[in-house]
């Protein structure tokens, strides 16, 4: 019984460890809404993403005109077409996927998605080109703030995405499009 043995070993050994909780939390950003927005944009661009600022009513037209064969997963008819049981072959043919972001993190450009935003968990990774829509007022300062807002108990899966897939495993040269999306476009509304 590995479990009993491991726990017994831990209990025997742990006596000398000191338990101390955290010191005062930092955070509580002094940045204004527009400063947060600018920092968010700067970090996303730094991570290789493209950022487009739009008014809400322009979004649909923009999406339809900018890309052909685009699948907007905020539309019920599109979601219905790609249920959780959908085949990988079909998912693998997705060129442009639009998903709605829940939360943006200014300090690193990360955008939070969870099960309720994803008809199928693999979509943000298997699509060749990923497009997020995000409302500007959903940008917060730091990851610490982000984990105050989300609740992991609400979702079976959740992910922060901060750019297109990338690697530097060959001589440290940065290459976009390792396994996940080759491109990321964020439409800020």
């Amino acid at each position: 019984m590995s479990k009993a043995e491991i726990l017994a070993s831990i209990r025997k050994q742990k006596g000398t460890q000191v338990s101390i909780r955290k010191i005062a939390q930092t955070g509580g950003s002094a940045l204004s809404v527009s400063e947060l927005r600018n920092l968010f944009i700067e970090n996303l661009k730094g991570a290789g993403a493209e950022v487009v600022c739009l008014k809400r009513e322009e979004a649909d037209t923009y999406i339809a005109s900018a890309w052909e064969n685009v699948l907007d997963f905020s539309k019920p008819e599109v979601i219905a077409e790609y249920p959780a049981t959908c085949s990988l072959e079909k998912l693998n043919r997705i060129e442009h996927a639009v998903l709605q972001g829940n939360l943006g993190v200014a300090e690193n450009g990360a955008i939070w998605l969870e099960d309720k935003d994803l008809p199928h968990r693999i979509i943000p990774f298997i699509a060749q080109h990923l497009i997020f829509t995000l409302e500007t007022n959903k940008i917060i300062a730091t990851m610490q703030d982000a984990y105050q807002q989300i609740d992991l108990k609400d979702t079976g899966y959740g992910v922060f995405i901060s750019g297109p897939s990338k690697t530097a495993d060959i001589e440290q040269s940065l290459v976009y499009g390792a396994h996940g999306a080759r491109e990321l476009t964020v439409l800020l509304i």
Binding site: N43, G46, A47, V105, E107, N108, G109, A110, T142, M143, Q144, D145, A146, Y147, Q148, L152, T155, G156, Y157, G158, V159, F160, I161, S162, G163, P164, S165, K166, A168, G180
Partner: peptide, 24 residues
Amino acid sequence: GIFTRLLARNATGQAVTTYTSHYR
């Protein structure tokens, strides 16, 4: 919140890894 602020910055000098995935 603390560890995701430290990990990638300290590892490769990125603000965060491209994907931070939470499997539950």
